[in-house]
Amino acid sequence: MTANETTDLLLAAKRKKGLSFADLETLLGRDEVWIAALFYGQASASEDEAKTLAKALDLNDALTQALTEYPLKGLGPVVPTDPLIYRFYEIMQVYGMPLKAIIHEKFGDGIMSAIDFTLDVDKVEDPKGDRVKVTMSGKFLPYKKW
């Protein structure tokens, strides 16, 4: 089963049950963004998490097992074509170097971890049009000198 097939089957099962990622957050005790990453093959579940999802979504054994496999992370080497995903790519093209400079000023020479990391997405109502609020929080990892 390919990663895309796994994703398609998981999303279909979620739709069939009428569940949101927020519903699954309550069920698993994991953040909705992490659960979505799991569905898209960017994270791996423990056996217990996979079994809990399997029960809630009526998943077969092969799909349940696929949830526990170590993922191949990332979008690949191409520029994303989905408009929403492309906007994040564009944000990094425009603001990536400024963010890097500010992080270095505040923390020193290092990086923000994408491993020790959380990501939250919130809807902020605004009379001029609702806003998407994305909060990224990653542990700062200084580069070592040797």
Rank of each mutant, 00 (worst) to 15 (best):
M1L: 03
T2D: 14
A3E: 14
A3V: 13
N4R: 10
E5H: 02
E5P: 01
E5A: 02
D8V: 07
L10R: 00
A12W: 08
K14R: 15
R15I: 05
R15Y: 07
R15F: 08
F21W: 02
F21M: 02
A22N: 08
D23G: 01
D23Q: 00
D23T: 00
L24Y: 00
L27E: 02
E32C: 01
E32N: 01
W34F: 10
I35K: 00
I35H: 01
I35D: 00
A36V: 02
A36E: 06
F39Y: 03
Y40H: 07
G41F: 05
G41A: 08
G41R: 06
A43N: 10
S44Q: 14
E47N: 15
D48T: 08
D48S: 06
A54D: 02
A54H: 01
A54P: 01
K55M: 04
K55G: 07
K55F: 03
K55H: 05
A56G: 01
L57T: 03
D58C: 08
D58L: 07
D58H: 12
L59Y: 03
N60V: 04
A62M: 08
L63P: 01
L63C: 02
T64E: 12
T64Q: 13
L67D: 02
L67V: 02
E69L: 10
P71F: 11
P71K: 13
G74S: 05
G74V: 04
G74H: 03
G74A: 06
G74F: 03
L75A: 13
G76H: 05
G76R: 05
P77H: 09
V79I: 13
P80L: 10
P80W: 06
P80R: 03
P83M: 07
P83A: 11
P83L: 08
L84G: 14
I85L: 14
I85C: 11
R87W: 06
R87G: 10
R87H: 08
F88C: 10
F88W: 10
F88R: 04
F88L: 11
F88V: 08
Y89K: 09
E90K: 04
I91T: 12
I91D: 09
I91S: 09
M92S: 11
M92T: 11
Q93W: 06
Y95Q: 15
G96Y: 02
G96S: 04
L99R: 09
L99H: 06
L99N: 09
A101L: 13
A101T: 13
I102P: 05
I103K: 13
I103M: 14
H104N: 12
E105A: 12
D109R: 10
G110M: 09
I111N: 09
M112N: 09
M112C: 13
M112H: 07
S113A: 07
I115W: 15
D116A: 14
D116M: 13
F117K: 08
T118N: 11
T118S: 15
D120Q: 08
D122Q: 12
K123D: 05
V124L: 05
E125D: 14
E125W: 11
D126Q: 13
P127S: 14
P127I: 13
P127A: 15
D130H: 10
R131Y: 07
V132K: 05
K133G: 01
T135G: 01
T135Q: 03
M136Y: 06
S137I: 15
K139T: 15
K139S: 15
F140H: 12
F140E: 14
F140N: 13
L141Q: 11
L141M: 12
P142W: 07
P142A: 12
K144I: 05
K144G: 04
K144F: 06
K145R: 06
K145F: 04
W146K: 15
